[in-house]
Write a protein that binds this DNA or RNA. Structure first.
Lengths: 321, 321
DNA sequence: CACGGTATGAAAGATATTTTCGTCCCGGTC
DNA sequence: GACCGGGACGAAAATATCTTTCATACCGTG
């Protein structure tokens, strides 16, 4: 059982353990979240690998029937590339990818028919737009949930629940998500602050120390304005969390815990910001509920009283309570 | 590819069919009805084969993870027996049985999901929280899409597309939604502004006149801070839109068009703000896409150039496209 | 235009699967 | 009770499949 470092891929977690049935200790291979994973990882793939990934995502059942040589032939690449792709997707090798593919195919088979696959067109009637958007966001939610690493999530929750203070960084659309998280945390009595001004964010980040938490929210993972404060927080000993759609992006360098959001195919009338926001919000909600669970003793009364406080700002409804 | 008749089993394919690797003409490999097949065929199996079949039927997922040697070892038999069993069950070889097994396991897995119907409990493991939240938000999306009045939506879109300027009111969680809408409209070249300060909102509302649009976002529909500016806008002749979960609430008094968001059951660990936000965002997205369609000529380049402008604020990814 | 680094496929090397073939067990027969 | 077919069964050879290595071609960069 020699364990040399092989090639360059593998993500640097070299403790491969061939032949231990029951699930690898680091990353349980994705069961159904494969299409999502393909989209998430596609940007970091080389062209040939993208061809393979596309074929796989396109027709899981068909690919499951192919040997590594067959798939290589189909995609016009080599066996090595196919194996490399399988590795990138999180499987020990092609054999395991193939197994997952068979599972995925079976699920699709039994599951629902792929309803509204077409993209939104300029001349779609408004009813179609509603249906397509709703379907798309539902899909995004499912993908995100399937792809979310619960170990990382739990770690982030633990850090948050015990934090002296929490800073959240996000700009643009992600800034709103950052604010959403902050609002929620404040409601259960945690000290949280959202920063959208990069300068102020850095200025504040230097105040952080061990026991504090810093969270960066960025879809691309390469937004300098967000990375910088996270780096500072990281270097000052704070626990850092990155919520990003690109798990191999620069922001993860300074993140103790990485929470991956899903990436839906985008188009002109459906900017990436839309589905990434949906995905990010789900992650944020999970963080919130997780923390609320951990701190239930103090969170429950805090929630109740913030609800109370808002009541008198509502006018009486025409009917009903 | 020589095709001698091998061993004695194979169920009387005596009429050798050299080189037709298509798929067995008699029995397409069973997809899911494997357990049944095992029981049916068990009597005609030898003892060793029964042990193998039993193991397979007993734990498809586990067996799918095993190699032919592994399964042979587990059942105390030999590789040959395992292959023989696979053949008897209707597969060309063990490899295909294994694939079917993986599919079966995936199906069982997904079938066992609907524990999600219950509410989120304080002691739910984090994985359940993720699943439940995702499921819940999916439900909210479906409800919202189903309940959205497309006529009202179309009217609101028309008003927005032709507006001189647009003001959006929202406080608290709805304030973020208001900002989201504003960001989107700005990106396609429309003049939009989000107000979360009630005083400023009113101050600005008096500037509005016919041809302008005012949008109020409030889940309860009775948030005075949001109703007030909408009323002012309404009285100044602007076209007013209310995005609310309560179509009979005070805010609708001053709304030309009411867009109804859905209301999911809430609970302690799942505040109303969570699902209402999801719902509101879907409505906002619909508005955005609708407007983008109507103003495609100008929206498309605007979208493209705002994308351009952001590009240089991103650091290079570790491996990029 | 040279350079360094990376992506890529051909082929060697390692595993897994399938087939072959001989042994052994079982039940019947003389 | 010994002998004899008939088939179950597994060890090991043969083959298919997967994985790794390594040399080459490609690409962006200074």
């Amino acid at each position: 059982m020699t364990n040399e470092v092989k090639e360059s891929f593998g993500g640097g977690r070299g403790s491969g353990d061939p032949g231990s049935p029951g699930g690898s200790p680091v990353a349980p291979p994705a069961p159904a979240a494969l299409a999502a994973k393909v989209r998430t990882l596609a940007p970091s793939m080389t062209r040939s690998m993208q061809r393979v990934a596309e074929a796989v995502a396109d027709d899981p059942a068909g690919c499951a029937a192919l040997t590594v040589t067959g798939l290589a032939g189909l995609t016009g690449t080599s066996e090595a590339t196919v194996v490399r792709t399988a590795r990138l997707l999180g499987y020990p090798g092609y054999r395991d990818l193939r197994l997952a593919l068979a599972g995925l195919a079976a699920q699709q088979q039994s599951g629902r028919a792929p309803a509204i696959t077409t993209d939104i067109a300029v001349d779609d009637p408004i009813a179609d737009v509603v249906a397509k958007l709703a379907y798309d966001e539902q899909q995004t939610l499912a993908d995100t949930a399937a792809g979310l690493d619960t170990v990382q999530l739990a770690a982030a929750v633990t850090a948050l629940a015990g934090a002296r203070r929490t800073d959240v960084y996000g700009v643009g659309a992600s800034g709103l998500v950052a604010q959403d998280l902050t609002q929620k945390l404040l409601r259960i009595g945690l000290l949280a602050h959202a920063h959208s001004d990069p300068h102020l964010a850095v200025t504040n980040a230097v105040q952080l120390r061990a026991g504090d938490v810093a969270i960066a929210i960025t879809h691309s993972g390469s937004t300098g304005d967000v990375i910088e404060p996270l780096r500072v927080a990281f270097e000052h000993g704070a626990t850092t969390v990155a919520v990003t759609g690109r798990p191999d992006s620069p922001v993860t360098q300074y993140a103790d815990h990485v929470l991956t959001t899903s990436t839906a195919r985008e188009s002109e009338l459906r900017p990436a910001a839309m589905s990434s926001r949906t995905s990010q919000l789900l992650v944020v909600d999970c963080l919130f509920v997780g923390v609320a669970q951990r701190t239930y003793e103090s969170a429950a009364p805090a929630l109740a009283s913030s609800y109370e406080a808002l009541a008198h700002r509502h006018q009486a409804a025409r009917r009903g309570p």
